[in-house]
Design a protein around this nucleic acid. Structure first.
Lengths: 241, 241
DNA sequence: TCAAAAGTGTTACCTCTACACCCATGC
DNA sequence: GCATGGGTGTAGAGGTAACACTTTTGA
């Protein structure tokens, strides 16, 4: 793998992705941790090739990290404060990892590439968490799902980027009917409701919620799902586009 | 004034502004036409200094073109198709203006700067059209307000940028109470209604509209406005933040 | 038979809409 | 007085929220 400074990327422009998943009544975000000492966490991100649409670049980055190609993806905001650079982060990283790194030749170019001020285009993705096998890059020590309320501290403004992504997700959820991207192929009405309650962090009345969702006319009712529990078996539903 | 290629700008990143005004029951957009032969129109735009927030850059560009500094301004989308470059436009411009231009030295650098692929951050502004004195730059032959339904053909994807801006404006209008930025300091209820009808391109019932707007609790009722017409004088209102 | 959870119905309430009416103004 | 446009009131429609009830399931 070549270094960013050797690739034919647009300079000082990056893409950062907030990948939302849902499991166990928790909204989660996929966050890699870098191989370097110091517990540096950063959103999955990347750069844009000279001849590449930004949407395509975002898809490429997403596929790299999740292993799946059909992903719901939406641009939501572009972050461009002048202070958005990795200088502080990179210097601390070098300080803590001086054994592995030298600051000459090749590394010098990398340093110059990474420490400049970047403008970053934010995308959020909604994925079925069961279909994703998180993929590490060479630079990742690990990549994990974190509960959105329990995110690690991330570099630069990445925590703020997640906050803005969540805000946009809430605004778009009803209008664009995108919540189902977070669920598996089939699901019960209770699961939909719990997802909504998690995203909006508030309860919904069960009967009214069911009515509201069914009135959207986007769900197909399938057979019942027998769970073995001592109660009426719920129907399964499938989202139809 | 120095040329863009000589300034310390971020490369391949630009800002384009859709400046909305309102007059005579028409929603208008401020569009400059370039000095060169060939009727080239382009949205007011510019570039971002290395040490400048993108919001500040947008304000700077706006102030340059409108002469006013307190402007309602909002980022709405970032346009980044790989085909977004001015190559075709610049070549046609040079063809048509070969008498004024040479392609050597200084101009060569300019050519290289302008013909690369650009990613552009879109902002829309809402201004009181009476307060604006449109300002030409060195490169503008003219700068004029165009009805949004009667825009000239603009370079690259600028017409599409306006369309997306209008879409966003409609979405944000009610929630963010920003329509009043398009009106003068004081206005009648009829003027507010006509503005809304223009933006949404549909009629509203007069009494219900009044109730809806007053229920927002953001207007202050002032004295009556006697127009000389043979009917009841309407109240003036002021928007209070 | 019972508890738990799913499905459905019903009513009260609020909001939005359409219609109606009255008021001020200048001719 | 009268035409014109502005301001306000009100009943009906439609939608939302709260409550109630029935059904299914396995222990």
């Amino acid at each position: 793998m070549r270094s960013p400074s050797e690739e034919n990327y647009i300079q000082q422009l990056s893409i950062d992705c907030v990948i939302f998943g849902y499991h166990d009544k928790q909204l989660k975000v996929l966050v890699p941790k870098l191989v370097f000492k110091g517990d540096f966490c950063a959103l999955p991100g990347g750069f844009i090739y000279q001849e590449e649409d930004i949407d395509i670049a975002a898809h490429r980055i997403l596929q790299q990290r999740t292993g799946i190609s059909e992903i719901y993806l939406e641009q939501f905001f572009t972050f461009g404060n002048a202070t958005r650079n990795s200088l502080e982060f990179i210097n601390r990283l070098i300080d803590l990892n001086s054994d592995k790194l030298t600051s000459e030749g090749h590394h010098r170019r990398e340093y110059d590439w990474f420490t400049r001020r970047f403008v970053s285009i934010g995308y959020y993705a909604l994925v079925d968490i069961n279909k994703v096998v998180p993929q590490k890059t060479d630079l990742d020590e690990s990549i994990e799902w974190y509960n959105i309320n329990d995110l690690p501290e991330m570099i630069i403004d990445h925590n703020a980027i997640v906050a803005k992504a969540l805000e946009t997700l809430r605004q778009n959820l009803d209008e664009k009917l995108i919540a189902f991207n977070l669920l598996p192929e089939t699901f019960t009405m209770r699961e939909v409701q719990e997802l909504y309650e998690t995203i909006f962090d508030k309860p919904f009345a069960r009967n009214n919620f069911q009515k509201m969702i069914l009135d959207l006319n986007v769900l197909e009712r399938l057979e019942k799902k027998f769970t073995g529990a001592a109660n009426k078996a719920p129907y399964l539903y499938r989202f139809r586009k």
